[in-house]
């Protein structure tokens, strides 16, 4: 049996919209073993991003428990979550979300500012991360000097630089053409297979989901599982 990295039990998340209460997630259960690569698909508004936010400690459930590693995220304060995120989870967004004023290298170094590493150690580690994503030669470029695919690689380097076990990707290829998307997905696959990253990826693209080990369908606040390959 493989070790469990994350377990969601009876997770509900409701939002108050004016007078109306909207239950986005309803009594959701999910177990994610170490080394998993999950694709989550589902219609817009079905709660995929909400689920990722809960897994990444950006948000807390209205009810239920979210356990990642040894941490019970539903019981942690904002500042506890904040420092937990810095070492335990890497985020990859659809629009890359790099800081435009920083070079690729400095963007990747950002999470390391929260560690005790000195300047040269931060630079060394960022360089390694950039090499892993194949952008070692673009370290001094600014985001505006990079293509979308390259920007996403830098964002991936930033997500892995502090070596978190879990990567959360919200439509990471949503803004890329087919070919570039496939390169990014292959990169994620390599990170999953060779670097032991557990990955949860939200996508609208069935071809993208094929890169994952399994695909879950999010609908009406719950997840339906369907094994792939």
């Amino acid at each position: 049996m493989t070790e469990t990295l994350a377990r969601l039990e009876g997770v509900s998340r409701t939002y108050q919209k004016g007078k109306e209460r909207v239950e986005v997630l309803h009594q959701l259960d999910l177990t994610i073993p170490k080394g998993d690569f999950i694709a989550i698909m589902g219609p817009s508004g079905s709660g995929k991003t909400t689920l990722l936010n809960l897994l990444g400690g950006l948000d807390r459930p209205t009810a239920g428990s979210v356990r990642v590693g040894d941490a019970e995220l539903s019981k942690m304060s904002n500042s506890q979550l904040s420092s937990w995120r810095s070492t335990n989870v890497g985020f990859i967004f659809q629009f890359y979300n790099l800081l435009p004023v920083l070079t690729a290298q400095k963007n990747v170094e950002l999470p390391l500012l929260l560690t005790r590493f000195g300047g040269s150690e931060r630079a060394r580690r960022a360089k390694i991360a950039l090499d892993i994503v194949g952008l070692g030669d673009r370290a001094r470029h600014y985001p505006r000097e990079l293509s979308g695919g390259q920007e996403q690689r830098v964002a991936i380097a930033r997500a892995i630089v502090s070596d978190p076990p879990l990567l959360l990707c919200d439509e990471p290829t949503g803004d890329l053409d087919r070919e570039t998307a496939d390169e990014i997905l292959k990169l994620l696959q390599i990170l999953n297979r060779e670097h032991d990253k557990t990955i949860v990826m939200v996508t609208h693209d069935a071809q993208a989901a094929d890169y994952a080990q399994r695909t879950l369908h999010c609908d009406k606040g719950t997840l339906k599982q369907r094994e792939v390959a």
Binding site: G56, L58, N78, S79, S82, S83, W84, R85, S86, T87, F91, N97, L99, P100, L110, P111, L113, L114, R158
Partner: peptide
């Protein structure tokens, strides 16, 4: 959004 990203990465309030 950049400030939100910093927070996402674990920068404290």
């Amino acid at each position: 959004s950049e400030l939100a990203v910093l927070k996402t990465l674990g920068f404290s309030d």
